[in-house]
Design a protein around this nucleic acid. Structure first.
Lengths: 246, 246
DNA sequence: GCGAACCCTTGACTCAGATCAAGTTCAGGA
DNA sequence: TCCTGAACTTGATCTGAGTCAAGGGTTCGC
């Protein structure tokens, strides 16, 4: 794990797709970041950040899955973002967290102290530029998800989620997104339900239905094989070209 | 209507809350913007921009209401953003539109040719900073709305929408957000349904129910009086402090 | 090996919101 | 003034997903 990858900072040749910032391999900046960098580990189920907390750090996920969630007083919860390795956490310029950040699996975060990170940002416009770009991507993803939550059936919701996770997972290994893909679901049925605005029973039933209908194959509860990605996209109600979640 | 307000650009004393950019009253920038500025009018129902179109301009809504919508092949549509006067349209750095922009009422837009606007942005870091801030606000609003779409009942959804529109409308006139507020709904029942992930019949029924229960008063179909904003917030399922839609 | 704690599945029943089908209201035009 | 059409309301019925309940499979610690 070299420095570039480790920091989730990289130039275009970086193997991680969603970089926190693109420092264009500028050595000075990397050194500056080294000084304010530290790691933290979290256990599955732990809340990394509570909504309303003062943010001490920004950073990116090194390994594991975290999620942004909102909870109503009566306990209804909605996941509003999924944080996979290399995803960025935190809002430069915002002192307080807007959402709970929860570790869905064990998580290792690469953190930067917020204040110095923000200072660096102000001095390096292309970093601010990159952050704007990332934020726009997140916004597109959020809006794409609004269609899923507002208008899709339970079956379509499940297929949409599987296609996102499958695409994301597979894109690290494969070129193109056609034919057969295989991946492990990093979410419990309950977490899937919270993301999709469903109950865990409905998620379970629809997973069984997709299996019965040959859209997916399941080995154990988490290991998923999609024989035809096109078929899955079709079940998700998306156009074949697949504009889902950047 | 002075230049500052007209452009939806302003310093902190600007009466419009959601400014396109904060030029800090810098005269040079205002002049630059004047040169690339033009107005366009659109009729209710007209699509300003089709998803996938090349964006010729960015700009802000001067009057009227527009909406960002997504449509599935079978016609199901979901509104993913509401554009009220002074809201910004367009993504600097993105050449193609991701969503349809539809005029919900007659709309006047104040447009800036995209390329020169982007050039100006690159040269003026604080404008880029302001755009990042705006985008983060939009992202928060989108995520807030994901909770509404995923977890709220029809009645709560309607109350949430009314509280957003009421807050927005009233905030231009009042200090604080307590007690009685009065406003005109700028949306048809169908547009409300598309925003809330409901059918127009359900919207109509729930509006009637809220009226019957004294949460709102209706004069005609669009003129709404909310006797107690706190009560409305309560119906929306939000905490009294009201973190809804920035 | 056994119990406990999770995570997941499945069945039976319920219900909120969708669908289908009439009406009503109201503004604008002939 | 009446006609027309768009926007809206209301009723009857249906249905997809929620709720409640029971049970299976794994993993972990004792």
């Amino acid at each position: 794990m070299n420095k570039t990858l480790d920091l989730s900072i990289g130039c275009d040749s970086c193997p991680i797709k969603h970089r926190a910032v693109c420092a264009r391999c500028d050595a000075d900046e990397l050194e500056t970041l080294e000084e304010i960098k530290y790691y933290r580990s979290f256990e599955a189920g732990q809340t990394l950040i509570w909504s309303g907390d003062r943010m001490e750090f920004v950073g990116s996920v090194v390994s594991g899955i975290a999620s942004l969630t909102q909870t109503m007083e009566d306990g209804r919860t909605q996941m509003v973002g999924l944080l996979l390795p290399s995803d960025f956490v935190g809002r430069p310029g915002r002192e307080f967290a807007s959402y709970d950040v929860v570790a869905t699996t064990d998580v290792v975060m690469c953190c930067f102290r917020r204040k110095p990170f923000e200072n660096m940002m102000v001095e390096t416009p292309h970093v601010a530029q990159r952050l704007l770009e990332m934020t726009l991507d997140e916004l597109d993803a959020a809006r794409e998800w609004m269609l899923v939550l507002g208008r899709k059936t339970a079956r379509e919701k499940i297929a949409s989620l599987l296609s996102i996770i499958g695409r994301r997972d597979a894109s690290l290994k494969l070129e193109g997104m056609v034919g057969r893909i295989v991946f492990d679901l990093p979410l419990t049925r309950e977490a899937m339900a919270d993301y999709l605005g469903l109950t865990l029973e409905t998620v379970s039933r629809q997973m069984s239905a997709l299996k019965r209908d040959g859209v997916i194959e399941l080995e154990g509860k988490r290991h998923v094989t999609v024989p035809s990605f096109e078929r899955l996209m079709d079940e998700a109600g998306d156009d074949a070209d697949g504009g889902m979640m950047a």
